[in-house]
Design a binder for these strands. Structure first.
Lengths: 352, 352
DNA sequence: TTGTAAGCGTTATCAT
DNA sequence: ATGATAACGCTTACAA
């Protein structure tokens, strides 16, 4: 019993066939006689050979079968967002046909690159998630390596296929819905305005410092209808962050809006809670809208009036773009539409 | 301008050095004179060479720098569990020093293996998450490939390092707490009893079909104190599943327990909601305990009485085990202890 | 259907 | 500090 693992050459020799034949038995790329196949498999079993070494195969093929998924924050944080989770499912689905795995990558930490994964990961393609401050760097790195990239919910220039949502229009629909109900005094809760941002009212200055596309576009959508609606930025897309924002918005009984537009369902759930704290009945005293159309665990029987976005589809589209690019085909950018869903959290303002 | 990408040999030639020297400039494994380094870097820049091809490097080195993380269900579902998310963070942390990436892998689908990722992924080690039905198969595959494995919350036999929790003892602490408060009539809500299971009461037969270690051990912990406590199995660890279970348990006003032990905080949050539906005040009319000690988004101001488990630490330990094994060192199994935390959801039963 | 041969791009070892 | 050389284990034209 030798110390080194058997190679396909060993198997071939032991089976009395050529290495190429043995290779083909495993890859199935060429017909092989049953007798030969059996001999090879037997030899493999005997030698404890469990198939071609993926490292060698990927060098030879020029492909690793791995797609990188690049996030900015801690992984656990990224997956807090239900939309991201759904997207991952769609992505996994779409790359399954080419048998690709998903490698979790964190965007280069600022300054140095200690664990320079982006520069050394054996990936065939990459999916950039979200429009992040470091995206430009990541993109440059990837491009230098000649690795195809697709961006989800971000803008990486004309040459990079993107998968996006009609954020502005969708958010505008929600605002229009409120206006048609008769609301004139609304406020909004936005997603974080930058990678690292404090909660608080968005003034003119801060308005111009919004680096997160999604946040800006949805804000614009509201402003299309309510140009002067005050906006409060949350620190994350979570119920707790929404609760905090809701308290800030609803705290002053003298100066309460009749409706709050939250930029995500999770935030809206928090606003709902804040409303309850303030003794407000939704939708009678206050209307609340969300965004995403996910199932917020534990929110029932409330059903948010929201825009349902095809999150899984977005991931699938990104995956399909990757597959296309790896097949040397063109990958078009795609923009998905969100669908209005009326729940039980919106109604005409009191006294209208 | 040739069509093929520059290799390290091209760079070396262009810089007037040997390939080995150029290689060393990039790997930093051996001192190189400043002048030489500069020449090589310049040549690389000129040729658009962005560093060694990871595929070739990994073949040569015998290492890919990738650690596989094996789940059973859809990725998005796995990440629903906050404990898993935290574990991923710890894991990512622990493998960062060896600059390893995390590859998401799904346990072989039943029967055939269409996208046979486990058999062909270029991974140096693998982390199996949870005790799943298919674990034995995955393990066999990995073992045949000679890939080191560590299991989190599962049992893969004596040779496989494991990272586990004192589930039974921890759950027993909670039960003891309730007993010491005076509760004699308790019920419990368990995690799913198998990969695919319906919700419902656990009878003697089903009791023996529990394939999920965590579920069984925590159940045992309760039974150590309350041998006859009825148990209701949830379909998932979520607020909604806990709500459903809570309704089943609390629905009959004539036959209500005075306390419910849920096997996860999310489930407990659902039970809390069910209690509210039934008009019960917690903890006066009903005591509820959780398990995990996570921050349930939106649960405040309720604070569950629960066992706080070091989820991130578990991931870190798994990562450290991987690092050890890759360094040919022994990786010990570790068992973490959970810490009792008294919240505001438990109290003596009414009239005691 | 099977065999021959030529790399894929690196890096480790051992000299110098 | 640098260079020559030999693998690493596999796949795929192409030939037979």
């Amino acid at each position: 019993m030798s110390t080194r693992r058997a190679t396909i050459a060993d198997v071939a020799r032991s089976a009395g066939v050529s290495p190429s034949t043995a290779s083909v038995v495993f890859s199935g790329k060429t017909p092989v006689s049953d007798a030969t196949r059996r001999r090879v498999m037997d030899a493999a079993a005997t030698l404890g050979y469990s198939g071609p070494d993926p490292r060698a195969a990927s060098l030879r093929r020029g492909r690793s079968g791995i797609v990188g998924v690049v996030f900015q924050g801690p992984l656990g944080t990224a997956f807090l967002d239900p939309v991201i989770r759904l997207m991952m499912d769609g992505l996994a689905d779409a790359v399954a046909p080419i048998d690709a795995g998903l490698l979790l990558l964190r965007e280069g930490v600022e300054g140095d690159s200690p664990g320079a994964s982006l520069t050394t990961a054996p990936i065939d393609a990459a999916v950039l998630v979200g429009c992040t401050p470091g995206m430009a760097d990541s993109l440059a790195t990837l491009r230098a390596r000649g690795i195809p990239v697709v961006v989800v919910e971000g803008d990486a220039g004309p040459d990079v296929p993107r998968v996006i949502l009609d954020n502005r229009e969708a958010q505008r629909s929600l605002a229009s819905h409120l206006r048609s109900l008769g609301h004139t005094d609304v406020a909004l809760v936005t997603l974080p305005t930058s990678g690292q941002s404090d909660p608080g009212w968005i003034d003119e200055r801060r308005r111009h410092e919004i680096t997160v596309d999604v946040t800006r576009h949805r804000l614009d959508g509201v402003r299309d209808v309510y140009p002067d609606a005050p906006a409060y930025a949350a620190t994350a897309s979570s119920i707790d962050a929404g609760l905090a924002a809701g308290r800030a918005i609803l705290g002053d009984a003298q100066q309460r809006p009749t409706a709050v537009l939250a930029q995500s369902d999770l935030l809206a759930a928090g606003v709902l809670r804040a409303a309850a704290e303030c003794g407000l009945t939704v939708p009678d005293d206050l209307s609340v809208t969300g965004f995403d159309g996910i199932d917020v665990d534990g929110l029932a029987p409330s059903l948010l009036t929201t825009m349902v976005q095809p999150a899984t589809e977005k991931g699938r589209a990104a995956g399909e773009a990757v597959v296309a690019m790896l097949a040397e085909r063109d990958a078009p950018s795609v923009c998905f539409s969100s669908v209005f869903r009326e729940g039980n959290t919106t109604a005409p303002p009191l006294g209208s």
